[in-house]
Structure formats: C-alpha cells, structure tokens
C-alpha cells in the first residue's frame, strides 16, 4: 500500500506551473501548458454554464475560456493587472483540444519531487477530488496539484456535450 503510494507520487513528480486562485496556490503540469497570455476580450457564449466565460481569438483560432474561480465555486473577482489566461492542451477522449483558463496570477515554475507529494486527503463523498493529483508540500507552502484534463472534462465539457446533444 505504502509502496503504491510512493510509486504514484513519483509518477506525478515533475515540473509544475503554479498559480493562485483566491490566495490559494495551485499547480499544473507544465507539459500541458501551451502559453500564458494576458487577459483579453472574451466573447460570452450563450447557453453555456456560468464558469465558461466565452471564447477568445488566439491568433486567428477561436478557443473557449473557463474561469477557474467560478469552476471551483470561489467568489468572483474583478480582473486585475495580474489576471491572465493559461492556454492548456486538454485531452478529451482520444483527441486534444486547446482551452484557456483564467487565473488570478501565475507564480512560478517549480520542480516537485515524489517525496514532496502527499496523497489527496478524503473529504467524504460530498467533495469531488477526482481532478486533484495530489498535494505538494514545498517548504511551508501547500500546493493543490491539478489534473487539468479532468478539471476541464469532468464538468464543463460534459455539460457542453449535453447541450450539443440537444441542439
């Protein structure tokens, strides 16, 4: 059991991009990140869940943008100078799509070793933790490491799919 946990933790070890949302630190596998862009004009798309802010023009490509604060049920916040969009590549089934996620600010890129990763604590069935890879402990800081594929596919893409089915 313990060995398995260690194995799992080592598998998650690597470079992470960290960012903050409502004072909390989160980590995102750097390999999933395509680029980081400043906040830009987002076109709202009707009939989509609230956390989908809309679509943006990324150099001629139209990509959807998700507000991670709203996705995680955090309080909405006005954009600041530090608000930015992390463009990520998300695996959906067998194909990849590009999406943007709006975060309060990006912090740094850090190496997280297997020994710094703790398994996801259980909060009971009421809290969905499937999109958390683990908790990173770096010095005094605690980092929630996100499985971005699951963050963006579990909730909103499925909701959008459903919408699509009905269309």
């Amino acid at each position: 059991m313990a060995e398995e946990t260690i194995m799992a933790a080592t598998a998650k070890a690597g470079k992470y991009l960290t960012f903050t949302l409502a004072e909390e630190e989160y980590g995102l596998e750097i390999l999933k990140v395509q680029e980081i862009i400043g906040m830009m004009n987002v076109t709202r798309v009707p009939k989509t869940p609230e956390f989908v802010r809309g679509v943006i023009n990324l150099r001629g490509k139209v990509i959807p943008v998700v507000d991670l604060r709203l996705k995680f049920g955090l309080a909405e916040q006005d954009e600041t100078e530090k608000t930015c969009i992390i463009v990520v590549q998300v695996a959906q089934g067998d194909h990849r799509t590009i999406m943007g996620i709006i975060v309060d600010q990006v912090s740094e890129v850090m190496d997280i070793g297997g020994d710094q990763i703790e398994p996801v604590p259980s909060f009971g069935s009421s809290v969905d933790t499937t999109f958390i890879l683990g908790m990173g402990k770096i010095g005094s800081k605690v980092l929630t490491m996100l499985d971005i594929d699951k963050v963006l596919s579990a909730g909103e893409t499925a909701a959008m799919r459903d919408a699509a089915q009905t269309a």
């Binding site: 076109t43 023009n57 959906q92 959008m160």
Partner: peptide, 27 residues
C-alpha cells in the same frame, strides 16, 4: 467561419464563431 472547438460544439442557436474586424470573436 471558425469552429468554437470540440468542447463548444453544438450549442443551440450558435453555428460557430468568426473573428471580427476589431479582433474580438463574434458568434
């Protein structure tokens, strides 16, 4: 016409997006 991407496919009433002259996306 630009697709809104896999995730946004088939939203009722929206056929796709287009980049408007001001660089923003129009639906």
């Amino acid at each position: 016409i630009k697709s809104l991407g896999e995730a946004m496919k088939g939203i009722p009433g929206i056929a796709g997006g287009a980049i408007m002259p001001d660089g923003k996306v129009g639906l």
